[in-house]
């Protein structure tokens, strides 16, 4: 923890994420308006930052709902999607990739060909298939996003492990008769941490963006649930008439992704003592 505070980017990232979590948890108390209340007679109202009675600071959406309130409440779903989908694809993907690269031979071939199989089916078809089998909705969208992203995690991990496994210290460990588990998880995986962390933190953003794509197909969050992706998808038709409908949720996504990346960068530096010695 001390190290995190010492590391500037980790600290900033942590603060951003903490703020986001704060907004997500206390959304109900923070919203200026009821995010679900619609009044279609005041739809597409432009943002009014300093008006006399600026009820809608970030304007209203296509159904006259408060954009700011919706962004605040929408943080829940979007963070959840990002975290759960990325987290589960990370765990499964790293595990499969590491095992494959370390074991080599048949195990590697089977795992990687299986990954190829998933990867080579266009993700939209895969998503439709998964959602069609399980039914549309948030949880199934998360599962779909996670499955689509597993092969990428696995391949990156595998390529790193392949490279590291030839390093002298691993070979030395092998010679010393370290167990496979200890070699793989302690010596090899710890050294692949950096690129995996980067892919994972970038993945947070990708997951949120993919959810937007699924929402575009209607397969993401179902109304009345609010996600930033759904806000972007619904606002895209009005990109010229009411750009605030997509601009602000977009900014929210960028800030979130930025936060996770800063934290990822920082964590990597902390976990990678070699860099410190430079």
């Amino acid at each position: 923890m001390k190290q995190i505070v010492k590391n500037r980017s980790a600290l900033v990232g942590l603060i951003v994420i903490a703020l986001l979590l704060f907004f997500a948890i206390f959304a109900d108390f923070l919203v200026p308006n009821d995010p679900y209340h619609m009044d279609i007679w005041v739809s597409y109202e432009a943002p009014e930052w300093f008006g006399e009675d600026s009820q809608y600071i970030l304007g209203t959406d296509d159904m006259g709902r408060c954009v700011l309130s919706r962004i605040i409440v929408g943080s829940r779903i979007s963070l959840l999607v990002g975290a759960v989908a990325t987290g589960s694809s990370l765990i499964i993907g790293v595990f499969l990739g590491a095992i494959g690269a370390y074991a080599g031979g048949k195990t590697d071939a089977v795992i990687m060909r299986f990954m190829d199989l998933i990867l080579s089916i266009p993700s939209i078809l895969l998503a439709i298939a998964i959602v069609a089998t399980l039914g549309p909705g948030m949880v199934n969208a998360m599962i779909a996003i996670a499955i689509v992203r597993i092969p990428q995690m696995a391949r990156v991990t595998r390529s790193m492990v392949l490279s590291i496994k030839e390093e002298d210290y691993v070979q030395a460990g092998k010679a010393l008769g370290f167990s496979h588990g200890r070699l793989l998880f302690k010596h090899i995986l710890m050294n692949c941490f950096a690129p995996i962390m980067v892919v994972a933190t970038l993945g947070m953003g990708t997951a949120i963006v993919v959810e937007a794509g699924l929402s575009f197909l209607g397969l993401g969050a179902q109304p009345p649930l609010i996600s930033w992706g759904r806000m972007l998808a619904m606002g895209r038709e009005a990109i010229r008439a009411a750009p605030h409908m997509t601009l602000y949720p977009g900014i929210a996504i960028v800030i979130t992704v930025l936060g996770f990346n800063l934290l990822g960068d920082g964590l990597r530096d902390i976990f990678d003592p070699q860099l410190k010695q430079r």
Partner: peptide
Amino acid sequence: NPERIRIAEILQF
């Protein structure tokens, strides 16, 4: 269809 989704949301409300 975005129009239908909007109609669904209004009806829901």
